[in-house]
Structure formats: C-alpha cells, structure tokens
Design a protein around this nucleic acid. Structure first.
Lengths: 327, 327
DNA sequence: TTGAAAGCGTTACCAC
DNA sequence: GTGGTAACGCTTTCAA
C-alpha cells in the first residue's frame, strides 16, 4: 500500500480506502490508485485485514463425520445458504467423540471464527467452559439440549424415534429390538435408544431388547454382520428398530439372505431418510429429520445474529414419519 | 500472551515459545504456562501468526460434492494424514461445475493457502491461467490428466472401467449399456463412458448404448427411475455398466422390481466400491479406486513438498476389480 | 533458557 | 476528501 501510495502521490490511508467501498475517495483518485496497483502487481492482503479488524470471515462448523449423507446434507444446506454472506465455513470432524470435539474446537477458535456451529448437545466440561467464556454466537444443531450453550436448531431424538415405535405398536408389533452402536460415543443414537425404550413402556409393550452393532459410527455392514451373527435368534422379535437407515439397510439385506420375509416375518425401520431408504426394495420405513432444512435454518439464524438482531434461542425442525414397505 | 506471561511471571516471548515445539523452554515453565492459559481461557491466535509469518497454515481443497461417500473418504484420508502437520483444510464444493470451481478457487486463494488440491483435471481456461501463475504446490486428484497443472494423484478412469468391460466380456456378455449422467458436468463420468466404449470396441463387442440418467450428480434414485421408465426395453441388454455404485444399486432395485433376475437375465456393475455395493443382495460388481488411499497419498505428497523435497509429478493409485453377485 | 525491541500490512480514530 | 498515528498479537533477531 505504501508503494502504491508513493507512486500515486497520496497516503497509504487513501489507498486503503480506495480498495474498499469507502465513498469518501474521489473517483479520479480511486482510478489512479487502481491503475498503479495493477502496474505494481500489488495484491490486497486479506490476512492483514483479518488480523487488524479481528474479523476472520469464518464460521467454524463441527460434524461427527463428513462421511454421512445426512450430516453432509446439513452442511450443504448451510453452505449454500451462507454463500451470499461472504462468510467461509471452516469444517472439522469429531468422529463422534467429545474429546476430539474439544481439541478441534480449540483449533478452530484459533482462527477467530465469528460464529461456532456444533452438532449435538453433548460436550466435555472443559469445552463447555471454553465456549461459554467466548463472546461469539454458538449454535448447536441436530439436537435440542436442555441446557444449550447458545442457540439450538434441531429436533428431539427421543420424540422422533417415538413416532416409529407408535407406528409399530399401531400395526400390531409387540416384541421390539433396537439396533444401534454401543453406548458411549454416539449421543444422538443413545437418545434414540432411550426414546424407543420410553415409548415402548408408555405403550405397554414388553421391554425393548438392545442389539449392539459395535462402536460408532455404525453403518450398513455393521447392521448386516450383527444380524447374520445372531442367526435364527432374530426370529424372536416382531420388529427391528434401527438407529439409522444405513444400519436398517444392512439389517434388511441380512434378514433376506437368511430367508426372513420383510415385513411379514419381521418389521424393520430406519432413521434419517437417507436415499437408500427410498430406493431399497422394499422401501424402508424411516423418519425424515429435515437434514437439509437444519442447515438452512442454522444459516438463517446466523444471518439474523450477524445483523445484530434478536434471534430465537430454539428452532424446532419437526421430524416426520415416512412409512415404507418394511413395516 | 501478555496476560498469561504476567500471571506466570515470564515474558510474552517465553509464552510464545511454550506454545510451539520450541525445546528451549523448560518443561516446568511450559507446564505452568499451559495451566495459566487454560485458567485464563487464553486461545492462541493463528490469525496473528498467519499475519506475522506470512504463512496461512491452510491447504485449500475442492471436491465435486461433499455428499458422496467416495469423495468424503478421500477428504478423510487427507484430513487424518495431515493432522500432525499443523495445516488446516479449507474445503469447497464445486457441484461438478468447472465455473463454480473457478469462482471457488478465487475465493479460497484470498486466504493465502499454502497448497491447492483439486479434484479432476478439467478446468476453465481462466482457472488454468490463474493457477499456473501461482507459486504454490497444486495437486489434481482422482484423475491423471495429460497436461497436469502440477502434481497428480489418481488413476485413469478409462482404464478402470475397462476392467469391468473385460470382465463382462470374459463372462459372455455382449450387448452392453452404460448408465450415467448426461454429458457436460461430470468429466470423470464422461471418461468412464468413453473408456467403456473404447474397451468394447477393442474386444469386438457391439457398440455400447448410452442410457442417460439425467444431469450430474446422479445417484440411486436416478438410476432406479431411468430403468423403470425404460420398462421391458431394458431386456435387450446383457449388462448394464453403471457410472457409480449408487446408480448401480438403483438400477438393481428397479430391475428386481420389474421381475428381472440378476445376474441371470442381466448383469449390473457399479464403480467406486461404495459400502452399498458390498452390502446389497446380491453384492454389486465394482471397481475399488482406493478413495481413501488417494487422500492419504495427497497428504504424503504435500508433506514432501512442504519439506522442500522433490516429489513425483504423478502418483498412480491402481484400481482393482471387485467381482460381486450381479455379474 | 529467557528477554527486549522491532515490525509484519492493514484499519480505527481523530484531525484538518 | 485526505492524512498522521497507533495498534491489532504474534515471531524474528539479537543479546544476555
């Protein structure tokens, strides 16, 4: 800037103004400055700007996994809606582990993001302390925590799975099993399991059996492998309530390989409205949680917050039961 | 840093050193500094570092789509392998469009990345000019372009699909159709189609028919819908060579719904070794292109380049045919 | 092993 | 409409 200023015969300050939308620079001066800058090969340094203004133009986002069509869809919704805002997303994956999340968030915060978007409402204590000391918008998504860190956009996993259990009870199923990951890492999965257990009790069904498909993240192959390992023992159930559609698809494939008729011998349900649920034969009964809309709603909330307007603390994206041919 | 230094009773300079791998700080001092920093809620400011050192610590990465298990897996491999390097990935999605890629890269370059990782070897002319004027490492992946911008890590899509056609020819199939996206956006898909056509010619098979499943990206539902729309006309083929596993899965579901026996009446093949290929019933014949390994190899290449050592211009990740029950 | 001083390129603030 | 000054938080360099 100094070099450009010298050539043009103005101060660096004027050059600075000329490169922004500052209207107080005369058109003539601005033109001369642009020309000189081009000739000198001067490139405006956004790193310095970010440093000086303490505005990074980043929104930090954590996802449990990038390799999950649902989270990817949320990210897409967020990313598309944010496009016009000039903000850039800074993405990190926690691998479903809160310790990793903490480490990741520390790393992301070092970049001075202007907002922090987290997936889920479970965090380490250190992380909670760290984040609540910050003065920047925090949004938790895919969950509606009882004690949110800031804003929350999502749905209740317990209520969502209850839709499935009610549907199964309504169609005469009684002996249910829940297929999901071992306790620990996947807190949203754990909430779904708890929700299924609670709903079954409420409806007077027998206790829901837990079928452990391994440690999170569980997907198609885990569901399939676990059911194949069970063999005929799976016949004792009326319905297999799976933690996600990919797991349900694996379970469905395994059941058919074992000669079970779905839904005549056994019902299978998924969660999340993944593409595979609506393409498999038969289609898998599932819950559409509006992954895309979650991302879009987060973007909307951020817009409002950046405009310094008051935004709702809690945005509920209502889940919707989608009945397929597996139940 | 000054605040932390005051609490601990050292100079800011020592705090700075403590936060890096500088061994000249005593372990005792370092521990005390870490503790004080945690208590004060101090967060190291990478923006300032980036400014001062003129190094952003960013690697810019573009992917056609984040919502594709294969690209997600490449990103994961890259991300995991880069973890120790202190570099942060800056991700952007091109939606399979070179114009969008150009816009995206301009945006990413404003962050002064220290390297640029692109998917594919097709770019706009302006983009080629822009990038070749830069003095930073450029890596193209998922392709081995004839005129690479810098380094390339991947495989030949034409050779990879030839593995499939050879396998089909070897098992007596003659009348092949290729199911993929309309020409235009997905250049890797177009290369696969061209490769299938060339391989069939080489093997003396009849001309390969093109079945257009719509504009990129095509997935399960597009494959299914297209085949269902064709109805009985699909019976004229011995084999359906699909541009990807998700498409193949959709095609498989549609064929079964229509009462075709796979592989007796018709063979179906996919591409990419997605999870769905190995869990569906029957398993889908596919090509494992080493998505994860591509990411890892890119990370390795970057390590070498950042160490100012000479790195190979071209790293081939050999694709591998995986025969399933659909052929 | 630690510290002091200078400066990276920009912009906020105030003055004219 | 333009300019001068100071400062953003860190690291480089040199000195102790």
């Amino acid at each position: 800037m100094r070099d450009v200023a010298e050539v043009v015969g103005v101060s660096p300050m004027t050059v600075s103004r000329a490169f922004k939308d500052d209207r107080s620079v005369s058109e003539e001066t601005r033109r001369r400055i642009r020309r000189a800058a081009d000739k000198l090969g001067y490139v405006y340094d956004s790193t310095a700007t970010a440093f000086r203004t303490q505005k990074s133009g980043f929104v930090a986002v954590t996802l449990p996994s990038i390799n999950n069509a649902n989270f990817a869809e949320t990210y897409r919704g967020l990313s598309v809606e944010m496009e016009g805002s000039g903000m850039q997303l800074l993405l990190g994956a926690t691998n479903y582990r809160v310790e990793k999340e903490e480490e990741l968030v520390r790393q992301l915060l070092a970049r001075n993001p202007e907002a922090l978007v987290l997936t889920g409402g479970h965090h380490t204590t250190a992380m909670r302390d760290l984040v609540s000391a910050l003065r920047l918008p925090v949004i938790e998504m895919w969950d509606l925590p009882k004690a949110p860190l800031g804003h929350a956009v999502g749905f209740s996993n317990e209520d969502a799975i209850a839709l499935v259990v009610e549907h199964l009870a309504g169609t005469g199923r009684r002996k249910l099993a829940f297929v999901g990951a071992s306790e620990g890492a996947d807190s949203r999965g754990a909430e779904r399991r708890a929700g299924a257990v609670a709903a079954a009790r409420r409806l007077g069904l027998p206790e829901v059996t837990f079928i452990d498909a391994g440690s999170a993240p569980v997907s198609m192959r885990h569901g399939a492998a676990r059911i194949e390992a069970m063999g005929a023992a799976v016949r004792e159930f009326d319905a297999l309530v799976c933690v996600s559609d990919p797991v349900a698809f694996g379970v469905l494939s395994a059941c058919r390989r074992m000669g079970l008729r779905v839904p005549d011998d056994i019902a299978i349900t998924g969660f999340g409205h993944f593409e595979v649920a609506s393409v498999s034969e038969p289609r898998i009964t599932t819950v559409d949680v509006g992954a895309r809309r979650i991302g879009e709603a987060v973007a909307g909330l951020l817009d409002t917050l950046f405009a310094e307007e008051t935004a709702p603390d809690r945005v509920e994206i209502a889940p919707r039961l989608v009945v397929g041919g597996t139940s």
